[in-house]
């Protein structure tokens, strides 16, 4: 089991030019939590992820979760979408989070399906809910909402009650059926 500092050191020896840093995933009050994330630029994302999976010191075999936060109107935020990769190493029993920020008008990331095949549906969900396009994805369709749906409902500027998408089906009555 490696501490987040040791994991970061392993990444930084392989990618010294990136000057990556550890940050706490969340702080409660003024107390930082012990779950740490590494912020990576989209251009470097795939290299870092592949290194984290393949290197003997890190060995993150499993992509636990792939999710996103919309930082619209968030105090102090400079980017809009924070895509978060939760990684787990079954060999070493340690975890790390990778965070990658993308922006409008076309938030784009390279797909991680070549590294973890399980990323396929998670990336489809992010595309569905946040409109983040994963380039190179084998089958980037909506996964939760229906096919004719056009919005991305988990964005902060999407109204909770929708924009009237619910009124497109035929109405059955007793004489029809």
């Amino acid at each position: 089991m490696a501490t987040p500092e040791q994991i970061l050191a392993a990444v930084n020896t392989r990618f010294p030019t990136l000057r990556l840093e550890l940050k706490p995933l969340l702080t409660r009050g003024d107390v930082p939590g012990d779950q740490m994330y590494i912020r990576v630029k989209p251009a470097d994302l795939l290299d870092v992820l592949r290194f984290l999976r393949d290197d003997g010191r890190t060995r993150f075999e499993q992509l636990i979760d792939l999710t996103c936060v919309d930082y619209l109107n968030f105090p102090g935020a400079s980017d809009r979408y924070g895509v978060i990769y939760s990684l787990l190493s079954l060999t070493h029993n340690h975890r790390i989070w990778i965070k990658c920020f993308v922006n409008d008008p076309r938030p784009t990331l390279p797909t991680a399906t070549a590294i973890w095949p399980g990323a396929e549906w998670m990336e489809r969900e992010l595309y569905d809910m946040f409109g983040i396009v994963f380039e190179g994805h084998p089958d980037l369709r909506r996964i939760l909402t229906w096919d004719g749906f056009e919005a991305h409902p988990l964005r902060k500027d999407y109204p909770l009650r929708g924009k009237g998408e619910r009124e497109n089906y035929p109405v059955l009555n007793r004489d029809d059926a």
């Binding site: 909402t145 409902p153 009650r161 929708g162 059926a177």
Partner: peptide, 15 residues
């Protein structure tokens, strides 16, 4: 569940 994803009463589409 007054949201974009839930039918607000099945009687809108069914008798």
């Amino acid at each position: 569940f007054d949201t974009y994803a839930v039918v607000q009463g099945v009687d809108q589409f069914l008798p």
